[in-house]
């Protein structure tokens, strides 16, 4: 795709966002844009502010400065529940799964916000409540199936291998039919085969389901092969921003970051 500015369909625009924790600047006047149905990667060394940026988008952190425009609406701060309602899902770096619940229950929790039935309907076991639960279960089973999690469906997640837990986290994000998924190191700690498998899922989600993805990932080869756009962060500042092949050529990026990873 060539840079025909007028044809761009921007889903998310972050403009001059700054965040500090008790005086220490984690993010410094950072701006970037994410095109609809694209995969945009945030890369940079540890502590560059990548996860903090996702937390700002989710409304977990409140930035001191800057604006965020999502789907044409501009916000000074995001709120977690509203962000979720706008169709932004999240895959967490530490998975943040609900440890004592089964895979199915974890995935179904991703649908909770769509529930329209009341606690009393459920207590009395009324048909409407049962139907809603059944439809949630069906929908969750589709996500479980999509991510090849069938064998683990009824197992408690805290006992599952790390790679499987990552996929459960993705299923939980995917099940609510999000417009965008924020993925924080979905492949951390995985071996080569698992990474390939996860890359396949991410591509499917993007290409077949048309879901926009913001990806934080350390494995540069994965980033280069998946991304439509790469944004490089260093010490809370933007170092480079562009197509993967252009970013890879940027001398500043090579010296600051890429150079260290052969």
């Amino acid at each position: 795709m060539t840079a025909g500015a007028s044809s761009k369909d921007i889903l998310l625009a972050v403009s001059h966002v700054s965040l500090s924790f008790g005086g220490a600047k984690a993010i410094n006047s950072f701006s970037f844009e994410v095109e609809r149905r694209s995969i945009c990667s945030l890369i940079g060394p540890n502590g560059a502010g990548k996860s903090s940026m996702l937390n700002i988008l989710n409304g977990v952190y409140v930035p001191q400065e800057g604006l965020i425009t999502y789907n044409g609406t501009t916000f000074e701060r995001m709120e977690p529940l509203k962000v979720a309602a706008m169709g932004v899902a999240r895959m967490f770096q530490n998975n943040a799964l609900f440890g004592k619940m089964t895979v199915l229950e974890n995935v179904m929790a991703g649908l909770s916000r769509k529930a329209k039935t009341t606690v009393i309907e459920h207590a009395l076991g009324l048909p409407r409540a049962r139907q809603e639960s059944a439809s949630f279960e069906l929908k969750s089973d589709q996500a479980i199936d999509f991510l090849d999690l069938n064998p683990y469906r009824d197992l408690v997640v805290e006992a599952l291998p790390y790679g499987i837990q990552k996929r459960v986290g993705l299923a939980r994000a995917l099940v609510s039919d999000p417009e965008m998924i924020l993925m924080d190191e979905p492949m951390a700690g995985m071996n080569k085969e698992e990474k390939q498998e996860m890359s396949g899922f991410i591509l499917d989600i993007n290409k077949k389901l048309g879901i926009t993805i913001i990806l934080i990932e350390h494995d540069i080869s994965v980033v280069m092969s998946l991304s439509d756009r790469v944004v490089v962060l260093d010490y809370g500042r933007k170092l480079a921003d562009g197509r993967p092949e252009d970013v890879a050529k940027n001398p500043e990026v090579i010296s600051a970051y890429l150079g260290t990873v052969h």
Partner: peptide
């Protein structure tokens, strides 16, 4: 149970 196990994450998923 989601709130019990992981409060912040529960908020983020709505």
């Amino acid at each position: 149970m989601a709130i019990r196990d992981m409060n912040t994450a529960a908020g983020v998923i709505g």
